[in-house]
């Protein structure tokens, strides 16, 4: 397979080979890349499950988008779900992002990420230890996870269930002493079981943008002097009153369908239906594709 126009290869020991990758227990011998090679520097790994809840997507957008805005390289795997949201948020913030693939860097996998990968090759970097034209096979992805773990100075897990491929990346990160940061999830929601287990095993909880900022500062990824505006992750409910407010708080804690919300709060369904549209109009609450209502994109 020939080298694509924008492609390059980098051998271990050559100038430009990232020092952080040498921390890996088995650093890749050759890196095949498409895009800007200067992005091969310590960044923040952002990962999570492929099947996500709106909560997981919001968290990926919020933290990856904010960090990318500050110039931190967002490293992820271009998979569906959380990976996708993290890359997308970085690109939307015009920040740096690196996608590490388990196949050749010129292969669009998964196919649904084709458009995203094209943008990352253009504005960021797509990298792999697999040579050009290598089709994906199952065993390559756990291998690729060790590169994501090593390229990030820290690893942020936004949402993970059990069992999850996310754990292989988190294990690699812990093995080489990278801090594992985790966004806690609902104890009721199966898609968050993995996150909460990581927390119990000693990962650092991230519940505010300032938590992430502190971690990044301690890793010298952020300029200490630089004072950045920290977005508030909680709903700005101040103008909302009465029935609407009670409903908004309940939905922020636990996204629900109108019927369930009416039942849980002992409200009349017609009243709930009317309040929901009012809350949607404020932009605080939104309807998810599955018919539940919950906090809108946390930005």
């Amino acid at each position: 397979m020939s080298v694509p126009a924008s492609g390059w290869e980098l051998r271990i020991g050559e100038p430009g080979y990232p020092a952080c990758l040498l921390d890996s227990l088995r650093p890749p011998r050759v890196l095949y890349g498409m895009g800007d090679p200067r992005l091969l520097r310590s960044g923040l790994g952002v990962i999570g499950s492929r099947k996500t809840s709106p909560y997981g997507r919001s968290c990926a957008q919020l933290f990856a988008g904010w960090a990318a805005e500050q110039g931190v390289v967002i490293v992820s795997g271009a998979a569906m779900g959380c990976d996708h949201e993290a890359h997308r948020a970085a690109i939307d913030a015009e920040g740096p992002t690196v996608a590490v693939l388990g196949c050749g860097p010129d292969i669009d996998y998964p196919p649904a990420s084709r458009k995203l990968l094209a943008e990352i090759r253009e504005q960021g970097l797509v990298v792999s230890e697999q040579p050009w034209g290598t089709e994906p096979t199952k065993w390559m992805f756990p291998q690729r996870n060790r590169i994501i773990a090593a390229l990030g100075a820290a690893l942020l897990v936004v949402e993970a269930g059990l069992p999850s491929g996310t754990f292989s990346t988190a294990d690699h990160a812990a093995d080489i002493g990278r801090p594992v940061l985790v966004v806690p999830g609902s104890i009721f929601y199966p898609g968050c079981t993995g996150c909460n287990r990581l927390l119990r095993q000693g990962a650092t909880p991230i519940t505010e943008v300032s938590d992430l900022a502190d971690e990044l500062r301690s890793l010298d990824l952020l300029d200490t002097a630089h004072d950045m505006g920290l977005p508030d992750v909680r709903l700005a409910l101040s103008p909302v009153r009465g029935r609407d407010r009670e409903l908004a708080l309940a939905l922020a804690a636990n996204p629900m369908r109108p019927d369930d919300a009416a039942y849980a709060l002992g409200m009349d369904l017609v009243g709930v239906a009317r309040s929901l549209a009012a809350l949607e109009a404020t932009g605080l609450i939104t309807r998810y594709p599955d018919g539940r209502y919950g906090p809108a994109r946390a930005r």
């Binding site: 099947k51 569906m80 649904a112 269930g161 199966p190 594709p289 599955d290």
Partner: peptide, 15 residues
């Protein structure tokens, strides 16, 4: 089963 709370039940991809 898409969108039912127990997520792993649904075996369909987004496409």
């Amino acid at each position: 089963f898409a969108g039912v709370a127990a997520l792993k039940d649904c075996t369909c991809t987004d496409a």
